[in-house]
């Protein structure tokens, strides 16, 4: 039963045309929800959340740093899965996703590094240390840039997707390193505050705005991916009748 549903979804979303119709219906309400959620979380965190007992107000960078970092890591996992499907099953939509997921992920990885560094100066006393967490996060940014670059350098889109897909798959190892570096080796960076299992070590008055900002950032990432994927689908299917009709209608 569940398997059948997954299979149906796979086939439906695997069809570029179905994806296009589906995303036209989702975007009009997903976009405002994403923006409202993100702004709510950030304003709550910046204006209303209490200050920290040790760091004072500089800790407020957490409300952008953690959502960006988690988004960059999850985005790369999605990129890895798309890469696997593109390389093994040669599914067109996976190739499209490979192209759509990377740019915003790269932006988030850059945000994570920059905000982390701006947070590090007042708290640790340094902008940068070559510890395992920071170095592996920098490699994650390079991985994103590599996937984007490969797709731009190779002209034939299907070949480009296979090369980029392979790089995306291999890079998943680095995601694991980023995630567990703070547990496996000695780093300047502290361990995770939000824990999937067990109690989070953050006061609820700070945790809720953080969770809301995270959700908002992930939703905005989804919006960005959908817009980019639609563009790519329209371009790849430009000779098909349905895209021609769409363009003729001037359907924005």
């Amino acid at each position: 039963m569940v398997w059948q549903t997954i299979k149906r979804w796979y086939h439906m979303l695997g069809s570029p045309r179905y994806f296009h119709t589906f995303s036209s219906r989702v975007l009009p309400w997903l976009t405002p929800i994403a923006l409202i959620t993100l702004v709510t979380g950030l304003v709550w965190g910046l204006v209303f959340a209490p200050s920290d007992y040790q760091q004072g107000n500089s800790y407020r960078i957490i409300f952008i740093h953690v959502p960006a970092s988690s988004g960059a890591l999850m985005g790369y996992m999605a990129l890895g899965v798309s890469g696997l499907v593109a390389v093994v099953w040669r599914m067109k939509m996976a190739e499209v996703m490979l192209k759509a997921i990377a740019p915003f992920g790269a932006a988030l990885a850059a945000i994570s590094l920059i905000t982390g560094s701006l947070w590090g100066k007042p708290t640790w006393g340094t902008y940068w240390q070559w510890d395992a967490r920071m170095t592996s996060m920098l490699i994650l940014l390079f991985m994103y840039v590599g996937v984007i670059a490969l797709q731009n350098v190779i002209r034939e889109p299907r070949q480009a997707a296979r090369a980029a897909g392979l790089l995306a798959i291999v890079g998943v190892i680095n995601v694991v390193i980023v995630k567990y570096s703070v547990e496996w080796v000695q780093t300047l960076h502290q361990g995770s505050t939000l824990k999937l299992f067990g109690e989070s070590t953050i006061n609820p008055a700070m945790k809720y705005p953080l969770l809301i900002s995270m959700l908002g950032m992930w939703l905005l990432y989804a919006v960005n991916v959908l817009v980019r994927a639609r563009t790519e689908v329209e371009w790849r299917e430009r000779r098909s009748k349905w895209v021609q009709t769409l363009i003729r209608k001037g359907d924005q």
Partner: peptide, 16 residues
């Protein structure tokens, strides 16, 4: 002012 960390907080948010 963000305590005395206005520069760090606001540049982080601005760049993001």
């Amino acid at each position: 002012a963000m305590g005395k960390h206005g520069f760090y907080v606001w540049s982080a948010y601005g760049i993001s």
